[in-house]
């Protein structure tokens, strides 16, 4: 009932969202850690930059990323130096753009969770001979686990739901950058409402189920928010 190109778009969306989520957890965690614990004056500006994608139209973000990753942009020059060409209209270009776009959705829940833990458990661990990595893996990670799960779910679903940035950076290349949201747009443009309906319904059900499980998970969890 779904066409081959629909399935391809779904698979690509899944691949993009998974890759972006993994990258975001890796780079979002140190940013969240720093924001949660720093007393630096840079905390305000950095928080604002991280939160920018929440308020900016995706086209603005996409526009600047397009320029930066283009042949004359600083990211573009770097990638050319490295011999990987330019990123716009490629799978990895889409990944880079999505990482920026979904960053606040991952950083903020982790930051809140780390702030909720407070200083004390880390001090306790330090008096029990745990070094900083040890403290992170044996105290922060387990205590902030609900925050990390929330972050991963929000990062994943937000990436699945993006459209504007994809159009600006990725364009519409089957198997490379044509994700479900773009595919729906294409179907509507071509007046293929039946197929648009199917994909759109899948998106709604997927998003609803994910958010429903997220909220019931948060309610069940007493460690996060309650402390």
């Amino acid at each position: 009932m779904l066409s081959a190109s629909d399935l391809e778009a779904i698979w690509l969306t899944f691949k993009v969202a998974t890759t972006v989520t993994v990258i975001l957890l890796l780079i979002g965690t140190p940013i969240a850690w720093w924001l949660a614990r720093t007393r630096s004056r840079l905390k305000g500006p950095i928080s604002a930059i991280v939160a920018l994608p929440l308020v900016l139209p995706p086209t603005v973000l996409g526009f600047y990323l397009l320029i930066a990753m283009g042949p004359n942009g600083f990211i573009g020059q770097l990638t050319q130096e490295l011999g990987i060409g330019t990123l716009p209209f490629t799978f990895w270009g889409l990944i880079v753009a999505s990482v920026f776009y979904s960053l606040p959705f991952v950083v903020q829940p982790i930051q809140n969770a780390i702030e909720a833990i407070g200083e004390r458990p880390l001090e306790v661990a330090a008096t029990l001979r745990a070094g900083s990595w040890d403290r992170f893996f044996t105290v922060v990670l387990p205590l902030a686990k609900p925050g990390f799960i929330t972050a991963a779910i929000l990062g994943f679903t937000h990436t699945v739901g993006e459209f504007g940035v994809v159009l600006m950076i990725g364009g519409n290349i089957p198997g490379q950058t044509r994700v479900v949201s773009v595919q729906i747009y294409d179907h509507v443009e071509a007046l293929e409402y039946d197929q648009a309906h199917k994909l759109a319904a899948i998106m709604i059900i997927f998003s609803f189920v994910v958010l429903l499980s997220l909220y019931s998970f948060q309610r069940k969890n007493t460690l996060w928010g309650a402390k």
Binding site: R120, P121, E123, V124, A125, A126, T127, L128, R129, A130, G131, D134, R135, V139, P142, L143, L223
Partner: peptide, 20 residues
């Protein structure tokens, strides 16, 4: 010397067990 390298034991004012 970082706290975790000092051969000390510390009991905090409020019972600070790891809740997990």
């Amino acid at each position: 010397l970082a706290t975790h390298k000092r051969p000390l034991g510390y009991v905090f004012q409020e019972p600070s067990l790891f809740p997990h």
